[in-house]
Nucleic acid binder design. Sequence first.
DNA 1: TTCCGACAGTGGGGTCGCAAT
DNA 2: ATTGCGACCCCACTATCGGAA
Length: 513
Amino acid sequence: MLLHGLAAASRAVAAEPARNAKIGLLAECLRELGPEEAPAAVALLSGEARRLRVGVGPAALRDLPDPAGQPELGVRETEDALARIAAVHGPGAQAERRRLLHGLFARATEEEQGFLSGVLVGELRQGALDALIGDAVARAAGVPVAAVRRALMFRGSARAVAAAALTGGAAALAAFGLEVGRPVRPMLAASAPDVTAALERVRPAALEWKIDGIRVQVHREGDGVAVFTRSLDEITARVPEVVEAAAALPVRSAVLDGEAIALGPDGRPRPFQVTAARTASRQDPERLRAEVPLHVFFFDLLHRDGQDLLDLPGEQRWDALAGTVPEALRVPRTVTGDVDEAHAFFRDALAHGHEGVVVKDPAAPYAAGRRGAGWIKVKPRHTLDLVVLAAEWGHGRRRGWLSNLHLGARGGGEDGGEGGWVMLGKTFKGLTDELLAWQTEELLRREVGRSAWVVRVRPELVVEVAFDGLQRSPRYPAGLALRFARVLRYRDDKGPEEADTVDTVRELAAEGL
DNA sequence: TTCCGACAGTGGGGTCGCAAT
DNA sequence: ATTGCGACCCCACTATCGGAA
C-alpha cells in the first residue's frame, strides 16, 4: 500500500468521532495492508516510529520542499526512511538528516507531508493511539481484544504485537509473557482530591508514601541487573546505586517496581529537579553518585525466581516483596480502613518531605500500562489567586479559543515583571469549553497587543489556580515557577489589586513548597 | 579551541470531553 | 453513573550539533 492510503485512513479516523467506528476504519486499513505492511503502518500510526528518536522536530519541519504531484511512497519504504534518518549521528549529522528528510518529503504529496509531520512531532490528532490501534489490530487479526492488550503490556511495542497477531494469531500472542530483562508497561495511578475520597473508593486500603523521584523497573537475572524508566528506556549505567541494591537481593531472578530519588544527608528528599538531572545525566556515574546519591524505594514485585506474581492480589505481592527486599529499600506502608489513621499516615509522609500517598486496593492485580482504579494517588493541593497577563491561541479542538494563560502575581515592579506583575508560569488545564469561550471573549476585550500566538491583555481578570509546588526557574523573573498549575475558577469577586503577591509566593517557597 | 544557542528528547504531570459500558 | 482514552499543553533538564567568538 502507498503511504497515500494510510494518510487517507488517518484522516478518515480523525473525522470520525465514534470510537468503534475509528477502530473499524483502522482494522479495515490493516487488513488491506496485510501482515507484510501492517506492522510498519502500526508503527507510524501509534507514534512508535517517532520513538526511534528520528531527530526531527518542529524546527526541522518549518521549511520543506514542494510536495509531489503523484503518490508514490510505500508504507514500508517510509518507515525505513525514518529509521535511516534516526541512524545518522556525528559531525555533519544535521545537514545529512535534513538532506534525507527533504528527499523523503519531496516524494510525498501534500496530504502525505501533513501526515508525516504529524507522525514526526507526535501530533497525528486522529483520536486513536495505542489502545485503539491495539483494538484495531485485534479486529483485523480476528483475535480477542484482551489477548492483544495483554501482549501489549508485556511488550511495549505495538508494532511487534501487530506482527505477531497478524501472522500467528491468538497462539502467537499467547507466547508473550513476562520476561526477565524485558520491561513491561508500568501500572499507573488514578488520583483523588484527598485521603477521604480515596478511601471511599478503596477500603480497607494499603497506603504508601508517594515518592517524588523517577519510576524504575528493575530486572535481576543471576548476576545481571537492568533498570528501565517509565517509558521503558534503559538507564542501568546511570543508576549504580539501584543496580547494587538489586544485585544484593537474595534471589536468582526478580522484577521489581519502585522509585529512585535523591535524598539529602538528613534523608529528606531533594527537589525533583535534582533527581531528574542526576538520572538524566550520562556523565561518570561514580562522580555523580558521590555528588548526588540516589536511594531506591521498592513498592512492588512482579516476578521472583521463575514465578510471575503480577496477577496476584497486591497484598500477596507485597508479602513477597517484604520477604525479598530489606525494609530500608521498601516504601513505608500501612494497611487500614480507618480514615483518621489514613490521614495521620498522609501527614507523616508530608512531614518527611514526601509528595503524598498512594492508596492501593489490596486485592488489585498489577494492571500493567493501565491507569486503573487499583491505585489512587493523593497529594495536597495549594492555591493562589493570580492575574491573567496574556493568553495563547489553542490548537486542535481548542483552535479559535484563547487557551494557555500567562499567570502573574502582584509585585513591586522591581522583579523585572512588566507593570508590577511577575509572571510565574502558564496553564491550559482545568478549562471547560464554556470557560474557554468565555475567557476568549473577555480577554480579547482587554487586548493591548499581540504576536503570532500570544494576545497580551490588561491585567484585570483574576483566576484561582491550583498547583503542586514551586520550583526554581531559570526562565521566570522571580526565579520561581508553579508546578502543575491548573485553573479552578475565575474570581469574579476579586479585582487584580486583591491578587496574591510575589512576596507571598516567595514565603511559600521558603517554607519548602 | 572554546563557548553558546537552538533543537530534540526525556523526566515529572492534571483535567476535560466523549464514547462505550 | 462510571470508566477509559486521547487531547490539551506545562516546566526543567541533558545531550548534541554547528556556528560564533
